[in-house]
Design a protein around this nucleic acid. Structure first.
Length: 553
RNA sequence: GCCCCCGUAGCUCAAUUGGACAGAGCGUCGGCCUUCUAAGCCGAAUGUUGCAGGUUCGAGCCCUGCCGGGGGCACCA
């Protein structure tokens, strides 16, 4: 259990004890929260509960704090508990306990900081969900990286997680795709054909047409556009999958919208909505009474022509999620979808489910910056940098890092120059270099022909340098970070944490040498142990972010 | 017109969900390489948290109203 939870429980117990012996008056126990204070001089953990209790207890906060502190049981990992005006209770970790942390890390490096929050519950993360009508764009990439990071963290928090991609494999957009490819195909054959305004303009359409000519020559000249659509859809879908895999995103499930029609779920959804009185007919269309759930106006779910709008299958899809028994669903959407997300949840409620199990995560846009200037893009005209091109240019790791380097509510300027810069200005290299430096120590150690398990059983009480202890304090915090990312779905906390950990590592590396002649033998072994644990920490954190942990750079 | 997001150091952004003196990076200025990668380290300067009220022991965070920037308001997805 995380320390801050244990300490909160201890404070609650102390409150009860103080009440039962009359030191404190009777009042209802508040929610006790123990946090890490911003100011490290205030200790490692702190609670302001005495301040909150001043009114119900009708006592000075300082006195309440003292009463709590006096009734606290002794806790093995604490060095001391102190009370500070105006009524904070501060807890300080014992250095002796911190010094043993490397062994805890090394006991299960890739599990360190994990917790049982999810308790085996089923979670789903849905992201990207681009239709197979073109290459993966940067906005979808951001959603994908956020989603995959949340997925990795949720797994570390004990959830059984399904990473899922929802896409429309039929309908109007696919029809337009097929027509677009056919037009290009005919044009390449020198036949008269023109793209319409709504057709896909991108160069990749021409490429697809070229592929078809290479494979089939002019045999498809009189074939209907549907055939082109199926070819293009499958080809683009496969390409999207391969591209996402290049940045470490591999989906467990690709959910086809069309399957909702095949199973009858779409129409079943409509029938249920009708039977529950949430659908009415007007102007020949079927309207969803979303105003019953606070919407500005009702929304069309079946057009006058009899064709459903995207909302109906979206609702059917979320109904399906509810039926699959997910305890938690995280839906990740870009800013262009923020208006539609609430409507889907209204649909879920109209179907008779609570929508509480769904968390909608909306993120802002990504702008590429080169030489300090934004790179102009136009999705409509098919002029944009694709994920594939970005991976070619900067590699996967900078993409993974920078896409979570800001909170989802902030837009990101993706600096192409910085992304490939090999210096401390580039946080990606700065973090990975910490891992490289650790690996370097052990490489040197092996080159010197010294036994590679020499640090086993080292006397860790020799780790008394303040840099070492500061690093270990930060290492311990990983558990808190995983917990917060798994409950708040804010993976940028992980990116900031990784940077902070590296920023505490590098000065330690400078000041706490290992292989130098002036480092006495017992200390050398303790530090080897320390750096082995540090390397494990960086491998762990990089892995949580889906990044590589290089041995050399 | 309505809805959503944002407004914090010169720039880009954090701030443990209402806690202690608002922090990082970049940029600027000044130091540090005979020693495990200087792809690094050390130090300095930088704030009326857009404005005005309100809530309370306490507000960057919550409420109201303005101002400014971005996005969205389809029988498209």
């Amino acid at each position: 259990m995380l320390h801050h939870h244990e300490l909160a429980a201890a404070v609650r117990a102390a409150l009860l004890a103080a009440q039962s012996d009359g030191t404190l008056p009777l009042f209802d126990l508040p929610d006790v929260t123990v946090e890490r204070p911003r100011e490290t001089s205030h200790g490692d953990y702190a609670t302001a509960v005495a301040l909150q209790l001043a009114r119900p207890a009708r006592m000075a906060p300082l006195k309440i704090a003292t009463a709590i502190a006096d009734h606290l049981p002794s806790i093995d990992y604490l060095d001391g508990v102190s009370v500070a005006p105006p009524g904070f209770i501060n807890f300080r970790l014992s250095p002796a306990w911190l010094q043993q942390l490397p062994e805890r890390i090394l006991a299960a490096p890739q599990g360190f900081g994990g917790n049982g929050l999810g308790d085996g519950k089923k979670a789903q993360v849905e992201c990207v969900s681009a239709n197979p009508t073109g290459p993966i764009t940067l906005g979808r990439t951001r959603g994908g990286v956020i989603g995959d990071t949340v997925h990795r963290v949720l797994e570390s928090a004990g959830y059984a997680v399904t990473l899922e991609y929802y896409y429309n494999d039929a309908g109007r957009q696919i029809t337009l795709l097929g027509e677009s490819v056919k037009v290009r195909y005919l044009q390449l054959l020198g036949q008269p054909a023109e793209l319409a305004e709504e057709h896909y303009q991108g160069e990749y359409i021409v490429e697809l047409a070229r592929e078809l000519i290479a494979e089939r020559g002019d045999a498809l000249r009189d074939v209907p556009a549907d055939t082109f659509a199926v070819y293009a859809r499958d080809r683009i879908s496969r390409q999207q999958k391969e591209t996402l895999a290049r940045i470490g995103i591999v989906f467990d499930v690709y959910f086809r919208e069309e399957s909702l029609y095949e199973t009858g779920k779409v129409w079943e959804t409509l029938e249920i909505l009708q039977s529950r009185g949430y659908v009415y007919e007007q102007d020949g269309a079927q309207w969803f009474r979303s105003t019953a759930f606070g919407d500005d106006k009702d929304r069309v779910v079946v057009k006058a022509g009899g064709e459903p709008t995207y909302r109906l299958p979206d609702m059917a899809y979320h109904w399906d999620k509810a039926q699959r028994g997910f305890d938690l669903v995280v839906d990740i959407f870009g800013p262009d979808h923020h208006a539609t997300a609430p409507q889907v949840l209204m649909g879920v409620r109209a179907l008779g489910y609570s929508s509480d199990f769904v968390y909608t995560l909306l993120h802002q846009i990504v702008t590429l910056v080169r030489s300090g200037k934004p790179v102009k893009m136009s999705t409509r005209r098919g002029q944009y940098v694709t994920l594939d091109e970005l991976v070619d240019e900067v590699g996967a790791d900078p993409i993974r890092y920078f896409m979570i380097s800001r909170s989802a509510t902030s837009p990101i300027d993706f600096d192409l120059d910085l992304a490939v810069e090999h210096s401390d200005k580039n946080p990606v290299y700065y973090i990975q270099n910490a891992h490289v430096r650790c690996a370097g120590i052990f490489r040197k150690w092996a080159e010197a022909g010294l036994p590679d398990d020499d640090d086993a059983g080292a006397d860790l009480s020799l780790l008394t340098h303040e840099r070492e202890l500061a690093f270990l304090r930060k290492a311990l915090e990983l558990g808190d970070i995983i917990e917060s990312v798994a409950t708040l779905y804010e993976p940028h906390r992980l990116a900031f944490y990784a940077y902070d950990l590296a920023a505490l590592f590098h000065p330690t590396y400078e000041e706490c040498r290992v292989l130098h002649s002036d480092v006495p033998e017992p200390l050398r072994r303790a530090r080897l142990r320390f750096y082995r644990a540090a390397q494990a920490m960086f491998a762990r954190v990089l892995n949580l972010m889906g990044m590589s942990a290089p041995e050399v750079m």
